[in-house]
Design a protein around this nucleic acid. Sequence first.
DNA 1: CCGACTAGGTGGAGCGCTAAACCTAACCCG
DNA 2: CGGGTTAGGTTTAGCGCTCCACCTAGTCGG
Lengths: 340, 340
Amino acid sequence: MRVTLRDIADEAGVSMMTVSNVVNGNKARVSPETIERVRRIVAERGYVPSASARSLAAKSSRLIGLLVPAADEDSMMISPHNVAIAGQIERELRKRGYHLLLRGIAHPDEVTEALQSWSLDGAVLLGFLDEELDRISKATIGGVRVLAVDSYSKNRITTGVRADDFAGAKLAAEHLIALGHRRILFAGPSFSDVGVVHQRFEGFLDAFADAGLTWDDDLIETVNTTHADGLEVGLRLLTAHPRATAVFATADILAIGIMEGIADSGASVPEDVSVIGFDNLDLCAYVTPKLTTIAQDIGEKAATAVRMLIGSIETGKQPRKAVTIGVDLVERASTTRPRT
Amino acid sequence: MRVTLRDIADEAGVSMMTVSNVVNGNKARVSPETIERVRRIVAERGYVPSASARSLAAKSSRLIGLLVPAADEDSMMISPHNVAIAGQIERELRKRGYHLLLRGIAHPDEVTEALQSWSLDGAVLLGFLDEELDRISKATIGGVRVLAVDSYSKNRITTGVRADDFAGAKLAAEHLIALGHRRILFAGPSFSDVGVVHQRFEGFLDAFADAGLTWDDDLIETVNTTHADGLEVGLRLLTAHPRATAVFATADILAIGIMEGIADSGASVPEDVSVIGFDNLDLCAYVTPKLTTIAQDIGEKAATAVRMLIGSIETGKQPRKAVTIGVDLVERASTTRPRT
DNA sequence: CCGACTAGGTGGAGCGCTAAACCTAACCCG
DNA sequence: CGGGTTAGGTTTAGCGCTCCACCTAGTCGG
């Protein structure tokens, strides 16, 4: 059926090990002519090594898992934003000759199984809540190198990559403050659960502190980062927070919902209320008004994560401490000076 | 190191085969008490079967590939539409106990390697051009069951799943015609390359034929389905096609670009020009005006694809002929009657 | 009471590959 | 000219699992 190493070896009149060495570029032990001959036969016969056999025999599988929460009771699906990151990570892995196993995780216990069953060389844990990550680390990670993206777990087992959430939020708040805003609503998920949000909240506050201002802690809305939740916040903004002149949302999709809600309630963005988001999704440039936001470079995030993970696998060393990716303010049309 | 079948077998005082039977739910040959005992030990010891070993020894790997075109430098998943489908496919596979190997394909030749190296049980080819698909099928698919989503290849090797592109485009054109539009611009990629677009074009024309109207074949713009290309079309629409009163774009993202271009050129949507898209991305509801479009049920598409593929793998039968998923008109704010 | 059958197993071969140890002739240098 | 080295291999022993063939004691119909 399948063309195996033995077939090639027989046809070339050498041992299987020699073919194996050629295929794996282990030039040291094989003469140029043999390499040439084996290569030709491999190409002719269309030989493709069996990754399962290789990963069974060797330690390494050259397979990296991307584990993404899929806890959402109803949909159990991984979020589109995460799928997009998956695409970036796949590209980085492919460049380096690794393969990507994409796996949604509905329950932390599944992680052990996911890591072990394919003898993954390593795994990226994308966007888990801190608490989930702690539970995951307690479950034995069994020697598989693991790296967390977009999480702030306290434990030391997993290092990580993340955007500079603190600086980004600070940048956003500084932008609004510089425009003259003082009463700024903070809209996002509960920051006791989500480290990313916690960091953004701290950065947000820090901008006020730096400017010698105080922030009124009534000006907060705890919501999920969905368009629907944003819409709701926007609709009741004028009545719930009549004196707010601007909104900082922890995610673009939320910000866009909020903008729509504000418009629906009869006010206008940015004249009555300025809105700023976070992430810089493509989407931001498509809505009206175009959303001012904090850009994080997803490609760089993916590339860094892969570099750290593969580096750690290939050198056998522990990866460096957590790495933070820089952010930028992208000024568009959803922010302006407050009405006087 | 790793807990193996042998460890469990030794501890339970049975043969490896018995443990294997228990683990794989092969109840026929094992007594209830033995099942119970083995189950307990498996749980205690945290045994996870090795997928590589299993797929080496058995025929089946329970691994499905998701192959997506990936032009060399950029990542795949450029289109939001592919992202959405990928997410749904992962969920459907996970439900059925399969794993997903995500793989970008820069060159058709890579497909053979991608299919064989992990002994995939099957693969979904997502959004390949017809011509690429033909080249892929020529390369030996080597017994791996393969199913194409969103392609119209002429060859018989791969069946597929796709939206009813013909009916969808016809619906869109009928909607515009019913509103009173006669000069409708068709904007989309070259339909000689892309089967999906070809079908949509035919459906578009068919609506004119049914209504006893003729369509002026100057009213066409061949562009990529990106926001930027749409913007360009929109900007020059008034000068290039001054008498057009409506635009049918073959993708939402393109339609949204076109709307923005039209607005930028000083005209307004839908008063001056109506615009209709295709796909019904979430995005459609976030832009201003909200985009009228043709909805295709991505969840159903993914579920159908997975069902067909797994069904064909498990029964060993060839999958049914291509399946077409129904579409709907979603009327929002971007279409209205033409100015009189 | 015999042959056939069934329930509940066991044992060994082998899937395709690689790590590690081993082999052998040629070469090289003091 | 003999010991060490090197280039270019080979051999052996699994990796963890499943398929297939086989075994054995009970059971049961005729």
